[in-house]
Design a protein around this nucleic acid. Structure first.
Length: 486
RNA sequence: GGCGCAUUCGUCUAGAGGCCUAGGACACCUCCCUCUCAAGGAGGAGAUCACGGGUUCGAAUCCCGUAUGCGCUACCA
């Protein structure tokens, strides 16, 4: 075991481009990044694209895009394992010469049949090592038949390997429960086990921080390091992020990729804060931490062991907090793309920036995500508002008094010279009294008339932003509606 | 089936033998503020610390079993 003082911290995020990175992957990336930044070390990005068949087009772009969006900058890479085949072959060759591996000619069909047989007999499915002790002659024969072999590792039959995990402590695995795993596939590409060990060593990775689903294969890696006579890195297996059903998070659980959250209007800084708290905590009360605080305090010994269900409600709350903390300009800048995309077609583009500013100042503290900004504010941008006439009438407001109230309001507002919130309030509040209506009923009526909805930003400010002309027009329209229905 | 890991309020978590009649946060409920909605403030409900045995004067914390969940068990990563 080496000390942290002598070895510079180098960690890596090594996703495979077999799909878009989901929250679990990204959380692993975040922890690696935080660990690197905390220790002043390096964060390396490596793409593990050794599975040609499962490769997904565009996945690398999403990986890069996700990291960029969250601000997880890397110091080296991306390295692509698909471009390092020669290295893996060389080292596999060395392993073969040193007697740590052997070629296996078994067909997929035979392996499948073997596994079925084992399952039937309730035996653990494991390669039966048929090719491990082939005679020279048998080997030559198989070689001549044109079969391209895979290369397997000679796992010791006896003994055990103990993995020293920084989070879980010592975990022992009996060699008898491991099988002769494949190092080189018949297509010439290495398996994860080989490529991962070689690259981590060659790239001088000091700490491997990865999901706990890798814990079971770590003894194989440790065995490989031993065979190569290399010093293994330190391991830390991170707890899993679970779906609401407590199963490993996947596409089945709906929004699982980080890009989904970007589209749903979450702020990257909120996302980082939230993800950091999934499996890590500072103390018994701190929930909100800036990126700098996260870097300053992050440590492996405060990483938990238990899988965490992703709690979207809490994310929403946290996102709201971050949205409210933004300066108005900043908020407008972030909301603009969502408005552009989310507002009805009928709204004239480009949006008037000054007007957007005024509107945004009214809903900044009300929105929990950027994606809900358009629906929260569309009435500010539309020419007319549609709503159910019934909304105008409350429990203590009949049609006649509503008509009366709006008519009076229209009169009072017609001549208002300085259309601003305080003046509107100065005019309308006394009016409620005159009309014998509660402010609740009266302002509620006006709110529906002017915005088309029962929940909106404060009435007077809303009216100020909407402007005199639009307000009067909508008030008149409400009057029409009421007259028509009576 | 085998191997491994995990198990504290619905959820995220604090807790590293006495500070715990278990703390915080989200969600939920009530009240206050109030023109509605948010935000904010004050309260509330919510966990026999999976269960059973030990160890100890004393256990959520240590040990051993059991149960449950999850992961791995591929020429996937």
């Amino acid at each position: 075991m080496h000390s942290e003082l002598e070895t510079p911290v180098r960690v890596r995020f090594a996703p495979s481009p077999t799909g878009h990175p989901h929250l679990g992957n990204i959380r692993a990336a975040l922890f690696n990044w935080l660990f690197a930044r905390h220790h002043g070390g390096k964060f390396v990005l490596r793409i593990e694209d050794t599975d040609v068949a499962r490769k997904v087009e565009g996945a690398v772009d999403t990986i890069v895009g996700s990291l960029r969006w969250l601000g997880l900058d890397w110091d080296e890479g991306p390295y692509f394992q698909s471009q390092r085949s020669a290295t893996y072959r060389d080292i596999a060759h060395r392993l073969l010469q040193e007697g740590h591996t052997y070629s296996c000619y078994c067909s997929a069909e035979r392996l499948e049949a073997m596994r079925q047989e084992q399952a039937k007999r309730k035996q653990p499915p494991r390669y039966d090592r048929r090719c491990r002790n082939l005679s020279q002659q048998e080997r030559a024969q198989l070689e001549a038949s044109g079969i391209t072999p895979v290369v397997r590792f000679k796992t010791p039959h006896e003994g055990e390997t103990t993995v020293h995990d920084l989070i879980h402590g010592a975990v022992a695995f009996k060699h008898a429960t491991l099988d002769d795993f494949v190092l080189l596939k018949s297509d010439g590409y290495p398996t994860y086990h080989l490529a991962n060990v070689i690259d981590d060593h060659l790239m001088a990775i000091s700490h491997v921080l990865r999901g706990v689903e890798w814990l079971s294969s770590t003894p194989r890696h440790v065995l490989l390091y031993g065979a190569l006579d290399w010093q293994p890195p330190l391991f830390a297996h991170l707890p899993m992020i679970l779906g609401p059903d407590r199963a490993k998070l996947s596409k089945r659980h709906g929004a699982a990729t980080i890009i989904d959250y970007q589209e749903q209007g979450y702020l990257p800084e909120a996302m980082v804060n939230f993800l950091a708290l999934l499996g890590w905590s500072l103390d018994d009360h701190t929930e909100l931490l800036t990126r700098e605080e996260l870097i300053e305090h992050f440590s492996l010994d405060r990483v938990g062991k238990t899988g965490a269900i992703f709690d979207k409600d809490k994310l929403e709350w946290m996102n709201g907090v971050y949205m409210r903390r933004l300066s108005l300009d900043e908020f407008v800048g972030r909301a603009l793309p969502f408005l552009d995309r989310g507002l009805p077609e009928s709204v004239q583009r480009p949006l008037d920036e000054g007007y957007v500013h005024q509107v945004m100042s009214l809903i900044q503290e009300r929105a929990r995500t950027l994606a809900e900004v358009p629906e929260l504010t569309d009435f500010f941008f539309l020419d007319d508002v549609q709503y159910d006439t019934d909304l105008l009438l409350g429990k203590d407001l009949d049609t006649q008094s509503a008509i009366n109230a709006i008519t009076t309001t229209l009169h009072s507002l017609q001549g208002v010279a300085h259309w601003d919130a305080s003046l509107l309030e100065a005019v309308l509040r006394p009016l409620a009294k005159e009309l014998g209506l509660s402010t609740r009923a009266f302002f509620g009526l006006l709110r529906v008339a002017v915005t088309g909805r029962t929940a909106a930003p404060p009435l007077f400010q809303t009216m100020e932003v909407l402007g005199q002309e639009k307000c009067l027009r909508r008030l008149s329209a409400a009057l029409q509606l009421l007259s028509g229905s009576s």
